[in-house]
Amino acid sequence: MLLLAGCGNDDTTGTGEQADGHADTQVTYLDGKALFELYCIACHGAGPGHPGTMRLEERMSADQAPLLDRDNLPPDYVKLVVREGFKLMPPFRPSEIDDAQLDLLTDYITGDNH
């Protein structure tokens, strides 16, 4: 679920979009799938063109290289890599993915719900 919050506050119920085509929306991401698609999929999606997947294919079987296909990722390890980075993958700051969002993101990646 991706919600467009009213401007400048944490009200995540309204879209903030005005009828005249003017926008004024604060984009807030409230679930793991949306977070994964915004921050991770461009590098970790399946198939060619994804630098994360390309690199992981060098160290594991091709069917395990896309992050969502992995069956052995410990949640704490995902969190560590997100905050520490990993070679060409730079770290993500809490101003990008806060701790609560990181929990949602990790649950999504390590769960079966995708």
């Binding site: 003017h22 926008a23 004024d24 604060q26 700051r93 101003s95």
Partner: peptide, 13 residues
């Protein structure tokens, strides 16, 4: 760090 300032204030089609 201004990354939390994420308003799309206006889009004019």
């Amino acid at each position: 760090d201004l990354n939390r300032m994420k308003r799309i204030i206006e889009v004019n089609e």
